[in-house]
Design a binder for these strands. Structure first.
Length: 673
RNA sequence: AGCGGGAUGGGAUAGCCAGGAGAUUCCGGCGGGCUCAUAACCCGCAGAUCGGUGGUUCAAAUCCACCUCCCGCUACCA
């Protein structure tokens, strides 16, 4: 890999994964959005020509499904979310140079253009595949409209992905035992022509691409395994009516993952078109010598390191220079769950009245980009109070206040060699950090400089020097003012709002977002007003409250899901009578291979011996099970679990499956009444 | 079970890709200092055989193999 270090002469494009227009954004999404924003701003600070573009992902079956549930048209539904995103982004200081959406004209046209290019290049072919169909509704069942079993690992899976088992992307027609996820009707397969993209032909291209790919290690390593296992061609059409229609095919639309990443290009084009005074050639980054940097969640690595580069290569566009795949966010060690409201919602955070910079700082500096990070209000508060308030905010405030009181602004002397070296070192650190896409260090650099600043001012005690040695005092404060100015520039990527405030306090014109590192050694104006505090301390009680509220909310949901409350709905006696519950004796108990908890039981229920599957492995030794008297619900409909038929249900109590038995010995087959 | 991530002083993390003096920083603890500053800031001390075992190497937290545990996504607790 031999790409030039930033800053380069060529333009760079930074993108984040497209927010999906079907729901509210939470801190998980923000991690993508903010990290990419930080990368873009940091590149600009070190003098790299870089823009940040993205857009909403409007297509795909989840939007179609959710829109239908709300009785809306998909475009109307998705557009509403898109608009909400647009309102939210500025509140987190996400500085998109352009933010479009995949359903707009630019993206639609470009997508069709790219698909045609791929066709002309012979990269697309027709193949008859079996598609799940709902025979009752006479409706095709693409992607998540169908559920069934993964052909590779046997796990239950969605139509487009084995989301529960091996994680493989599934091609239409691959899934076994398909059932409509809408009606529950068993689906049947019908043969139907679809379009396939010859991804397999790009193996060499992709391997070379991965060898040179910058960004996080997971984005380089994970796809290597997929390539080793052999690349599958990729079905790029679907039988729904929400999406970009496939050219020349009336009843097919493009798979959402085709037009989604193309939005990265389309958004760049829109940016170029939006400029009035200057020229921007979008072709330079995408087809010329520029650079593309993708910031994504680690769940969409495959799309950005296999499908997308293959598409780009097949239609003569540049491949990305870097893919930065960040980890997930957990709360109290548990994964976010939107359906269970287990998340910190972006809007809720703002409603709490916290400055966006605080969350930006926390999300980008808590762990490495690739690492999963755990969110807690306590840790959030510690970082804010310690590093932002105590170290950075305090240094700037004490310095500027001292300078203003005693000199009316910047003392009229030069910066000392020691401080100049220190500032330059910090600038070097920022350059180094962004060249490694290390957003954590990007955010820590200004705080570390402030640490030095605090040590420096403490060591020199200008408050004493004021009378003892006025020249020396002026020197020290001059140095501190310069350090503060450098911090404004260095902090701008992560803390843009704070940096702008500081910039104004120094009476600087414009914005630190227009400055480059070189300016960090240029003296600020000789006069400025008294500063105000950059950050507010978060009270301990406040943190306690927030923590308690969050814990309550998550605990509540736990209880609900555990059904801890007594079921209020009464049933009549007849309903009870309809349950055929009998004693049984376990004859055989053996583990089901490949399953974590499942045990296959043969249970004698008097008149016959039943095979029953139960999740007992973690709680019992298998050989102590045989011979046990248990209680069996015998007229439960049979089901196949993990590929094993289960005819009946062994009753057990609690989450750790304490088996029910009788107090007195009982023969198999005695009815429970 | 699959895929992914992790295991470093009490807690949280850096370093590991490009191996080299018993190891970063923050919080917490203890002791001092300062008083310009948002009870902030500065200095010092205590505290880790870098999950385990083996291997490669003159040298491993860093490379390789195996193992154990933790976590996330999802699932099979009928």
């Amino acid at each position: 890999m031999s790409a030039d270090r930033y800053p380069t002469e060529q333009p760079t494009i930074v993108t984040c994964g497209l927010p999906y227009a079907n729901g509210d954004l939470h801190i998980g999404h923000l991690r993508s959005l903010v990290s990419a924003d930080v990368v873009n701003r940091a590149l600009n600070r070190i003098g790299q020509d870089s823009i940040y573009v993205c857009g909403s992902d409007m297509h795909g079956t989840p939007v179609a499904v959710n829109a239908a549930q709300e009785g809306k048209q998909p475009d109307e539904f998705a557009l509403e979310w898109h608009e909400r995103f647009l309102e939210l982004f500025p509140q987190f200081n996400l500085s998109f140079d352009n933010y479009g959406h995949t359903h707009d004209e630019t993206n639609t046209e470009l997508t069709l253009d790219i698909v045609e290019t791929l066709e002309e290049g012979g990269h697309i072919y027709d193949r008859e595949i079996e598609v799940a169909f709902d025979p009752v509704e006479e409706q095709p069942l693409p992607d998540r409209y169908v559920e069934g079993r993964c052909p590779y690992c046997g796990e239950p899976a969605r139509g487009d992905e084995c989301d529960e088992g091996c994680g493989r992307h599934l091609e239409p027609g691959e899934i076994e035992d398909p059932v409509s996820s809408i009606t529950g009707n068993p689906a049947e397969y019908r043969t139907r022509p679809h379009k396939f993209f010859r991804v397999s032909a790009f193996e060499d291209v992709l391997e070379e691409f991965l060898d040179g790919l910058e960004g996080t290690a997971n984005a380089r390593n994970q796809p290597r395994q997929w390539i080793e296992e052999g690349l599958q061609d990729w079905c790029i059409t679907r039988d729904i009516d929400w999406g970009i229609p496939y050219p020349g095919e009336d009843d097919l639309v493009l798979y959402v993952w085709v037009d989604a990443p193309i939005e990265y290009i389309a958004s760049t084009i829109q940016y170029a078109e939006s400029l009035v005074d200057e020229d921007y050639d979008w072709r330079e980054p995408w087809r010329g010598d520029g650079h593309i940097v993708h910031v994504i969640g680690r769940d969409i690595i495959q799309h950005h390191t296999v499908f997308w580069p293959a598409m780009l290569a097949g239609s003569d566009y540049n491949l990305p220079r870097a893919v930065c795949a960040h980890g997930f966010i957990t709360i109290a060690g548990k994964g976010l769950s939107t359906s269970r409201n287990r998340a910190i919602w972006a809007q809720d955070y703002l409603d709490e009245g916290f400055a966006p910079d605080l969350l930006r700082y926390y999300l980008t500096t808590t762990g490495g980009l690739q690492q999963d990070i755990d969110f807690s209000w306590r840790k959030f508060g510690d970082r804010v109070n310690g590093e932002l308030v105590g170290t950075l905010g305090n240094f700037v405030y004490r310095s500027l206040l001292f300078a203003h009181r005693n000199y009316g602004g910047t003392p009229d002397v030069g910066v000392s060699p020691e401080v100049e070296r220190e500032i330059q070192a910090a600038c070097d650190d920022l350059r180094e950090a962004i060249n490694e896409y290390n957003v954590r260090n990007v955010g820590l650099v200004p705080v570390e400089l402030a640490r030095f600043g605090n040590e420096y001012i403490q060591r020199n005690e200008p408050w004493h020097l004021l009378e003892e040695d006025p020249d020396a005092a002026a020197q020290v404060i001059r140095d501190c003012v310069q350090l503060a100015k450098a911090m404004a520039i260095l902090a701008e990527p992560t803390l843009p709002e704070t940096a702008a405030t500081l910039w104004a306090q120094l009476a600087e014109d414009g914005s630190p977002g227009d400055a480059t590192l070189a300016e960090s050694l240029v003296a600020p104006p000789s006069t400025f007003e008294a500063p105000s505090e950059l950050f507010e301390q978060i009270e301990e009680e406040r943190l306690d409250e927030l923590s308690a509220d969050l814990a309550d909310r998550m605990d509540l949901r736990e209880e609900e899901s555990e059904e801890d409350t007594i079921e209020p709905a009464r049933i009549d006696f007849e309903t009870f009578q309809s349950l055929d519950i009998r004693t049984g004796e376990i004859l055989v108990a053996e583990a089901i291979e490949g399953a974590d908890e499942l045990v296959r039981l043969e249970v004698d229920i008097g008149s016959e011996v039943r095979q029953v599957v139960a999740g007992l492995k973690p709680y019992y030794e298998l050989d102590e099970l045989s011979g046990q008297t248990v209680v069996v619900l015998t007229n439960l409909e049979a089901a196949e679990i993990f590929g094993v038929e289960s005819d009946g249900m062994v009753l057990a109590a609690g989450t750790d499956a304490k088996l029910l038995t009788t107090v007195e010995p009982a023969d198999p087959g005695e009815r429970i009444r």
